[in-house]
Design a protein around this nucleic acid. Sequence first.
DNA 1: AACGGAACCTGAAAGC
DNA 2: TGCTTTCAGGTTCCGT
Length: 277
Amino acid sequence: MPELPDVELARRRLQDWMLGATIVSAKSADRRILRPHPPSILKRSLLGRSVRAVERRGKWLRLRLDDGRNVYSHLGMTGRWLRREPDAPREQAERVRIDLVRDDWPPISVRYVDPRRFGRLVVTGKSFPEWEALGPDPLIDGIRLRPLAQALASTRRTVKEALMDQSLLAGVGNIVATEALWYGRIDPRSTGQALSYPDVKRIARGLRTAIRKELADLEASYPEELPDAFRVYGRAGEPCPRCRSPLSRIVLGGRSTTYCGRCQERRRARGGRRRRA
DNA sequence: AACGGAACCTGAAAGC
DNA sequence: TGCTTTCAGGTTCCGT
């Protein structure tokens, strides 16, 4: 579930729940999610701390604590943050529990639930390489055409694989990339090198549309989980919403990819091969 | 250095 | 019904 729009919604909720609150309990026994630190780090470094800011960059969340340390949270494939009453029972697949108090509120308990355990929770006072390596965030920094065109021109990967590279643009995942290319009418198999500047413009517009729409859908449906409102993702075999031609499914970079072979045009590298010394 | 593919995990859904 | 296979929206590691 978690790509940029999902993580941004998680950020807003965590901000509502935690900003200005003091942590009175923090527990987890999950070595995998807390790696590379031992589970004991949670209680040791969170107890008594208050939360000064809740930030997001790409698919990473960052809680800033009053002692200068940060809590980094990545939702992996199946991670979610939930708010519960302090006496509520443990959730299925609950991996982390943080209880907080705030002057103007009853105490709350925030639970991190993650069946597959691909998520992370890292507490550190040092700089965090995974965060530092992230490229510009489409919501925070916007999408700059020049650098994007430059980056796409210098890779031999397909455009879809390139868009999911977190150092190029932070937060674009399989759904957003798939949807954005459909909006922009670009075949996901196109090579980055083969794209024209107008193509890049269309992709950028597609990314903004896909992200904005997904955010709006998530907001509208909360606290329910919306059924798939995607235009093409997960809809192979169904008619293209634009031209009614059946949608195709292929695998790119190991990820399932849906597109319309009729209205998404493929760009192929022109001319001879190009070499660099 | 860049790329494809497997690995890391669990659970839901589809297939038999 | 119940067992098996497939697939999942993410990242990382390993071999070529």
